[in-house]
Simulated assay, not measured.
Amino acid sequence: MERSELVELLSPGGLRLLDSLPPYDPAADVVRVVSELRKAGHSPDLVTAVLGQSRLRAKAVPKFGEFAGRMLFTEAGLEQATRLRVAALHAGRFAGASLNRVVDLGCGIGGDAMALAAMDLTVTGVDADEVTASVASYNLAPFENASVLQSAAEDVDLSGFDAAWLDPARRTAGHSNTSRLTRPEDYSPHLDFVFGLSERMPIGVKLGPGHDRDLIPAEAEAQWVSVDGKLVEMGLWFGALARPGIRRSALLLGRTGTNELTAPRDSEDAPVGVLGDYIYEPDGAIIRARLIGDLARSLDARMLSEGIAYLTSRDLQRTPFATAFRVLEMLPVDEKKLRLALQERRIGTLEIKKRGVDVDPATLRTRLKLKGSESATLVLTRAAGQRVALLVERIPPLA
């Protein structure tokens, strides 16, 4: 969204037009819709803006739920925005530590700032980009205890704040068609500034879940967050926002509730054991937090092979931290023999999971020439260092 589109959109007529549109339909005839709006006397910039916002509001529903229908977005801002459910947990840290005046440095479209304000904290959002700051101002308008400042994070006077939240920009500049930055030194604000700020006040920092673990400051609590099985972020917490004795945490948010595994440090892997009747695939947050060993011990399980994130046990132990599979049989690893084995079992639909082996599941699935009415799950991995092909049955998750 360009500045000219935003100006049109923020006019009373622009907002009324946006709110009057029917629910976004990706199958709609866009040319016809544009033509009708232009015939009604609306400018090209306004038509572009309202249709773009209608699409983004629909796209934002998984992150913001019913609130998406009254918010404004930029493409890039929505991409990096925190899910409201996760933002509420961020805000809870500040509220729980009685840190009432919070500055959100790099607030984007204002998702985290909204959650902070909803906790009755006084929050100031800061963003260097004019359009993004304006969008955040609109989204935060319902909160009397929230304001937005257009400024570089490094230029803000922090003397009036108790704590800071930072979500460094990890995409190239712009409002759409941006790309992910792969080098932490290119983030904005720079991580030297971010981590240096922790020496002045309590801070929380949102980073990508794949962030280089060697760059995590020793004094930080690092928490990897998974939502409905999808790894979404790594949060770093400093000072009063970090919990005593916890340096590694895996937080899982699912349809059935919240579960967390914590530790004072990376856990040591469990010993490698003989393949049992069950294998377990830990959630991505467990793997990134390097808590696989602690999970294995809680399940009375062993590593299936050294350095591979599959566990195995003789008896089934239900856990929210891993997906369990019952091992039905071991199939041949040789591709030709494997194809024949699957044909004998009339398997026409095959989910292929793999770890520790150089296989492209999509390519292999094509080469297997699957035919039949049955469906199955195949795990290609290593057991005690040797390649194995396991036909497994997924155990339903905990209700």
Rank of each mutant, 00 (worst) to 15 (best):
E144R: 13
K63Y: 15
I286V: 06
E281T: 07
T172C: 10
A289N: 02
V327D: 08
D315F: 02
V7E: 15
P26E: 14
G229K: 05
P44I: 10
S176P: 04
E335K: 05
L191I: 12
E36I: 14
S98G: 12
R101V: 04
L338V: 12
G257V: 07
T178A: 07
E393Y: 07
D167S: 15
Q317T: 15
P209I: 00
H175G: 08
I352A: 12
D212M: 15
G106T: 05
K371I: 10
L197I: 15
L46D: 05
Q317V: 14
S134T: 04
A76R: 03
L46A: 11
V232G: 10
R55I: 14
H90L: 06
A141T: 09
F195S: 12
D358M: 10
P320I: 00
S151F: 11
A270G: 04
V135T: 05
M303S: 14
L241E: 05
E130A: 07
D112T: 14
L166P: 08
S267N: 02
P189S: 04
A40F: 01
D29I: 02
R326N: 05
F238G: 13
P264E: 11
V135I: 15
P23C: 13
L99D: 00
A97V: 10
R255P: 13
G65K: 01
P361L: 01
S373M: 10
D360A: 12
L21Q: 08
D192E: 13
L251Q: 05
E2T: 15
A136W: 03
D129T: 04
A322P: 07
T178Y: 14
M114P: 07
F73M: 11
L37I: 02
T319H: 03
C107S: 11
A117F: 01
E144M: 10
T381D: 02
K353M: 12
Y310M: 02
T82A: 03
L215W: 12
P62I: 09
S176K: 13
V359R: 00
A399S: 11
V102A: 04
P244K: 13
F238D: 03
A164E: 04
G257C: 07
A240D: 12
D266A: 11
E75Y: 00
D334E: 14
F195V: 12
G204A: 15
T178V: 15
G111P: 04
N177F: 11
L149F: 01
I216A: 13
A341M: 06
D212E: 14
L84Y: 03
R302Q: 09
A88G: 03
F193I: 05
T258D: 03
Q53E: 15
Q223S: 10
E351F: 04
R101F: 00
R170L: 10
L295D: 00
G254F: 10
Q343W: 14
G111K: 00
D334H: 09
L215C: 13
R346T: 06
S151A: 04
L275W: 07
L391K: 07
Y187P: 04
I347T: 00
R83K: 04
V156K: 03
E199Y: 15
D283L: 00
L140Y: 08
P264V: 08
P332F: 02
R394Q: 07
D269H: 12
L340G: 01
R248G: 01
E219Y: 02
A270L: 07
R83D: 04
L140E: 06
L46I: 13
F67H: 13
E199V: 13
P202R: 03
R367N: 12
P244N: 13
E2L: 11
D29S: 00
A97C: 09
L338T: 10
Q343P: 08
L291I: 01
L261N: 01
D277A: 14
